[in-house]
């Protein structure tokens, strides 16, 4: 018994002084996902809940994301040590001079899509010509605009915000949507799959990877071990979440309820299942966490063509995750 206490005292002396706040034996870091708590971030929740972060010596504080907390802003301001972000957003920021790095690419394929009601006569991409299309603002516009440009479609762009209600009430003919989120919201608003026409950007040469883990280059240079640990535990969290979906859903729902997001389990179940499709594209698990250079270049080229960036950031500068 005495021996144990002696060992603990030794450990305290060794690490305790280096650490800031919280659990004195762990390194405190903050993490902000792009959006409100939902299955899109199940991996991080499970890493936290299952103690994977603690196991690698991290005391992770998960902040609530959403429109009020733009993740990259939080990085810049130092509010968050780590964040998730779309690659298109991150590349633009990097190109604009923000020294951030991709530590891991989680979502390997694009879940962004356009959805129209078949009843409105839209069955092919060309049918979108001249139609009112609700598009999310910001980086969600990149792929649609690239597509419309490629296909020479002249559409009436209507800004779209957080809900699909404008579409439901007939204010627009098509909307942008995430496969794992709004598409299911529409299905559970009473539309059957065969009543909707869907256009996945991944099917039209615009298969952008999406969520990745980012931090400032400075953070990586100063605490490579912490960054590595965070990524390692997060990936472990994802593996666990995708392997234990029921347990994970319980956790996701508790997070969502705490945030009053008004979601339901069926929706989160769909989302988690889709995340698995997106993280393990075609069931391929070996790509977990990796950013493919070709896909990176597809993103940078597209951004360049749309004149959203001047020059492409070097892949090796941008991506600092697993090779």
């Amino acid at each position: 018994m005495k021996k144990v206490i002696l060992v603990l005292t030794f450990l305290w002396a060794l690490f305790g002084t280096n650490l800031v706040g919280g659990d004195s034996a762990l390194t405190h870091v903050t993490f902000v996902p792009q959006w409100v708590p939902q299955a899109q971030f199940a991996g991080y929740m499970m890493a936290f809940e299952k103690g994977f972060y603690k196991n690698v010596g991290l005391d992770v504080e998960i902040l609530r994301g959403g429109p009020a907390n733009p993740p990259l802003e939080s990085l810049k301001s130092g509010l968050a040590t780590f964040c998730t972000a779309w690659i298109s957003t991150a590349v633009q920021q990097r190109a604009a001079g923000l020294k951030l790095v991709n530590l891991a690419q989680i979502v390997q394929r694009s879940a962004l899509m356009l959805i129209a009601k078949k009843s409105s006569g839209i069955n092919t991409l060309n049918n979108l010509d001249g139609r009112r299309i609700g598009l999310w603002q910001g980086d969600f516009r990149i792929q649609p605009l690239a597509l419309f440009k490629m296909r020479h479609l002249d559409v009436i762009e209507i800004p779209m915000y957080s809900t699909v209600n404008l579409f439901l009430k007939g204010g627009v003919d098509a909307i942008s949507a995430m496969w794992y989120n709004e598409y299911h919201t529409l299905l559970n608003s009473g539309f059957n799959q065969d009543e909707l026409t869907t256009f996945f950007f991944s099917d039209y040469g615009l298969n952008f990877p999406e969520d990745g883990i980012y931090c400032l280059e400075k953070t990586l240079n100063e605490n490579p071990k912490v960054c590595e640990s965070f990524v390692q535990a997060s990936l472990k969290g994802w593996i666990y979440a995708l392997d234990h979906q029921d347990e994970t859903l319980d956790v996701v729902m508790s997070y969502a309820d705490a945030a009053h997001t008004g979601t339901n389990r069926a929706h989160q179940m769909w989302m988690l299942a889709r995340m698995k499709d997106l993280i393990y594209p075609n069931g391929e698990k070996s790509l977990l966490g990796k950013l493919d250079q070709k896909q990176y270049e597809l993103v940078t080229k597209t951004l360049q063509s749309l004149q959203l960036i001047d020059k492409q950031p070097l892949f090796t500068d941008f991506y600092r995750g697993r090779q």
């Binding site: 299905l187 559970n188 608003s189 009473g190 008004g262 979601t263 339901n264 389990r265 069926a266 929706h267 179940m269 769909w270």
Partner: peptide, 12 residues
Amino acid sequence: VMKESLFSLAES
């Protein structure tokens, strides 16, 4: 209330 719908119940 404001969480579930007929469709989400149907699904779950």
